[in-house]
Write a protein that binds this DNA or RNA. Structure first.
Length: 489
RNA sequence: GGGCCGCUAACUCAAUUGGCAGAGUACCGGACUUUUAAUCCGGGAGUUGAAGGUUCGAUUCCUUCGCGGCCCA
């Protein structure tokens, strides 16, 4: 690493501090207050008023204003900011030591009283300080912060310190996840953890990452979804389960996709997709009320209203939003021509369901801004969902679309092992014909189904996408602490 | 994978038609006993993402590559 001029200066300051007996990287300082505690307890002080009681705080110096015999510094800990008031009178020779050897970015411990300055700024009147960690690198500019997107992602720690909006997004993320747990726990759902390393990756149509287990001598895959394990738990008699899971898909990186992402999956025995519809609606409204105090949010300049969720079937939506009328009685070649006229490259191994699905994704999804449940997806692209009682080409499955993107996906789960076996076989056939993203044949899951799975409703919800909506950001990278990037060198 | 855009001091950004690489912040030195983007005076700081090409001369034009952003597949 290249040593900049400023780094050399800071290293010299570190040496000087050590020569003067400061144990700079010591961990022996114990604090007894946070900045927020001081604010909560003493904001009522009048300008010029002091509290002589001394408190111990620790945090980072964010800026220093030197006025000669007195100086001010901005100080921040995990709870917030507060100003430091330093005088030669209070600190004696240590006053000059602070000005000479403490820099923006340094972690310090201070002992001091509370003072509201004449200008009305609540401050800590520093009586003593220690340098707990010397920051050796120069910090981003105080006014503009760190703007460079690449630097913000690669050095998220800087982004979090310097850009308050970044910190807000991740605080919100934590809160939302907590609220989702709260919502499900109150309804007696049981949170579980299932394998990330799976011998047969299933539960979604996606390409997996693979790895090798040396001791077992087998190929394993990072899960693309936890679905098939959660259903095994339903079979095991855990009737209401959920997993807030990190899943992995070996596909392109884009503004919407990161190779690892966070999802919620919920399964409830003796429920169906209609129950899941109610559940996800209530859950989202719960989260909205507790985070935004409103069911309306503004996303990328559009108002989105979560007080009403509209419902429309898949085929009706195609007609309404794309002006395309299709059904499964049409000939394959007719559907193909229709899709191709919309610019879709139809593969010859696609079935009717897949052709329709491609048209839907391209022509309908982007138009659905307000929360909309799309019901009854084609069977071909839903190999784990129960067949629709009124149309054997469709399934009891819905997706919730918001702001043109899929936010949630749910089915009445297929619990007939004989039909599930046929579906696996159909998927295997598609793979032979060239489709890469299929549901693999999972023998072990079939055996579990053969013991009998109760009728069950299942739901998946994209957590990252939910956070994007709530924090009004356009790129998934803004809601991931460490989005995947190519290594720098 | 394709297209467009970006990469200049630690950070945020300039640089006219191809003509001596600049500013603000930060940093260093000095002044200042209530500032808060403190102020004032002075100073140092660059492999212009990398390599190559064109040219008397390249941050600027061309080629290739790297990283990132956006769009498309």
């Amino acid at each position: 690493m290249k040593k900049t001029e400023e780094k050399l200066t800071r290293l010299e300051k570190l040496e000087k501090l050590r020569e003067q007996g400061e144990a700079v990287f010591s961990n022996s300082f114990v604090r007894n207050r946070l900045a927020k505690d001081i604010r909560d307890d003493y904001s009522h002080l009048e300008p010029g008023e002091r509290v002589e009681e001394e408190f111990l705080l620790a945090g980072r110096v964010m800026g220093i204003r030197d006025h000669g015999k007195i100086a001010f510094a901005d100080f921040r800990d995990g709870s917030g900011k507060i100003q430091l008031y330093l005088t030669h009178q209070n600190l004696g020779e240590k006053y000059q030591r602070f000005l000479d050897y403490v820099d923006t970015g340094d972690i310090i411990g201070i002992k001091g009283g509370v003072l509201k300055t004449r200008r009305g700024e609540l401050s800590l009147e520093v009586k003593d300080f220690r340098v707990l960690a010397k920051s050796l690198l120069p910090w981003p500019e105080k006014w503009h912060g760190l703007r460079d997107v690449e630097a913000r992602y690669r050095q998220r720690y800087l982004d979090l310190v310097v850009n308050p909006s970044a910190r807000q997004i991740f605080d919100l993320r934590t809160k939302v996840i907590k609220l989702i747990r709260e919502f499900l726990d109150e309804r007696d759902f049981q949170e579980v953890e299932t394998p990330i390393l799976q011998p047969v990756p299933g539960g979604a149509l996606a390409k997996p990452f693979s790895t090798y287990h040396r001791a077992l001598g087998i190929e394993l895959y990072l899960r693309i979804a936890p679905e098939l394990y959660l259903k095994r738990l339903i079979i095991g008699g855990l009737e209401k389960v959920y997993e807030l899971n990190r899943s992995f898909r070996n596909e392109g990186i884009s503004i919407k996709h990161n190779p690892e992402f966070t999802m919620l999956e919920v399964y409830q025995a003796y429920a169906d997709y209609r129950d899941m519809m109610e559940l996800v609606k209530e859950m989202l409204q719960y989260v909205l009320k507790k985070t935004k105090a409103s069911l309306k949010i503004s996303y990328q300049g559009q108002e989105i209203d979560f007080s009403q969720f509209s419902k429309i079937t898949y085929l009706e939506a195609l007609k309404k939003y794309a002006g395309i009328e299709v059904n499964f009685n049409m000939k394959w070649s007719e559907l193909k021509d229709l899709a191709e006229s919309e610019g879709i490259d139809v593969k010859n191994y696609w079935g009717k369901g897949k052709i329709i699905a491609e048209m839907f994704e391209k022509l309908v999804e982007p138009k659905l801004i307000q929360p909309t449940f799309i019901l009854d997806y084609p069977k071909e692209i839903s190999p784990l969902a129960r067949t629709h009682p009124e149309n054997p080409e469709l399934t009891e499955r819905f997706e919730l679309i918001v702001a043109g993107r899929e936010l949630a996906n749910a089915f009445s789960e297929l619990n007939d092992p004989l039909e599930q076996k046929e579906r696996f076989e159909e998927q295997a056939k598609l793979k032979q014909e060239g489709e890469e993203e299929i549901q693999l044949y999972d023998q072990d899951f079939l055996r579990a189904l053969e013991y009998g799975m109760p009728p069950t409703g299942g739901l998946g919800l994209g957590i990252d996408r939910l956070i994007m909506l709530l924090s009004d950001v356009y790129s998934i990278r803004e809601v991931l602490l460490f989005p995947q990037l190519r290594p720098e060198e």
